[in-house]
Amino acid sequence: MNKGVLMVNLGSPDSTDPKDVKKYLGEFLMDERVIDVPYAARALLVKGIILNTRPKKSAEAYSKIWWDEGSPLIVLTERLQKKVQSHTKLPVEIAMRYGTPSIKEGLQKLHDQGIDDVMLLPLYPQYAMATTETILVLAEEIRAEFFPKMKITDVKPFYNKPEYIKVLGDSIADSLKGVDYEHLLFSYHGVPERHIRKSDVTSMHCKLDGSCCMSQSKAHEFCYRHQCYETTRLVGEYLGMEPLTYSTSFQSRLGFDPWLQPYTDRTIERMGKEGFKKMAIATPAFVSDCLETLEEIAMEGEEIFHEAGGRDFHTIPCINDRDDWAGVVAGWINEWALVETGKAIA
């Protein structure tokens, strides 16, 4: 079989025009694994309320972080692809779960090159039904309908892989060189608490009681909360940090249902009010910088900190297209090909 790779990221609007933002938000929020309520209720919420109020505000937010080349997330993913491609002979394409290029377009590009064995790499370190799972489900649906002879092998979440922790830890250390800070906050994208329970393959382990994530369980394979806390723990350990000098929080909640806590915005505010003057923040749920990191954290987060009495707010970039990160991804690709064929291809 002829092998190739498809790296899949979240996606982005085609432009900052409210019409493009509305189209993107519609596709994103109507995903049943993002807003996991019955279709009628989801359609009423998204099409009846959110898409009539949010696109203009979101477009303004996107305009604050948009680059001359386009969406930062798309540009950074393209840069990563080029670097990864330089380290492997296998064809490497990219796709977005929402927006363009679509997963179907990515698979089509590989198919047109004669590829019938695809390594699917969701660019999410931690597993969640609203991220990794929705990519895998859609990719399989597209494969079955349009490319029935194609084989897809997905890369498992890499939140605890030593080589990933090293890249993430080194990126944080590099960003913090010369920076005076009192606390490092690891902010992960939030999900509703019910997503954690729905993803519990044991149907009994996840209690969100502060201790279940620390005890051994098969549920951890699909537990976003556990994987986030484990990422923080491993990076803190790698960097030799004292336990009380860093912590974990969750950002970007939507609606009124309970989401994973502690909330990032409230944590930032609390730290400012408690007298912290200098803090740093990393966003390890994201491989590529995007609206949630460049605007929600770097701009809104800093404003919250200043208003609460804080002074220095340092945002750490995502790992983006770092050379060491591209090398790690290429290593996974070449290892996969070696295991499958018994032949080195780097």
Rank of each mutant, 00 (worst) to 15 (best):
H183L: 14
L184N: 03
L184G: 01
L184A: 06
L184V: 03
L185N: 05
L185T: 09
L185E: 12
F186N: 06
F186G: 08
F186S: 12
S187C: 12
Y188I: 10
Y188F: 15
H189S: 13
G190M: 11
G190K: 10
V191W: 01
V191T: 11
V191Y: 00
V191D: 00
V191E: 02
P192D: 07
E193N: 13
R194N: 14
R194T: 15
R194M: 13
R194A: 13
H195L: 07
I196F: 01
R197S: 08
K198I: 06
S199Q: 07
S199C: 09
S199H: 02
D200W: 07
D200F: 09
D200I: 07
V201A: 04
T202H: 10
S203R: 12
S203L: 05
M204V: 08
M204G: 15
M204A: 14
H205R: 02
H205F: 05
H205N: 12
C206A: 14
C206Q: 09
K207P: 03
K207T: 15
L208M: 15
L208W: 10
D209N: 15
D209I: 02
D209Y: 01
D209C: 14
G210N: 01
G210D: 04
G210V: 04
S211F: 09
C212S: 00
C213N: 10
C213T: 13
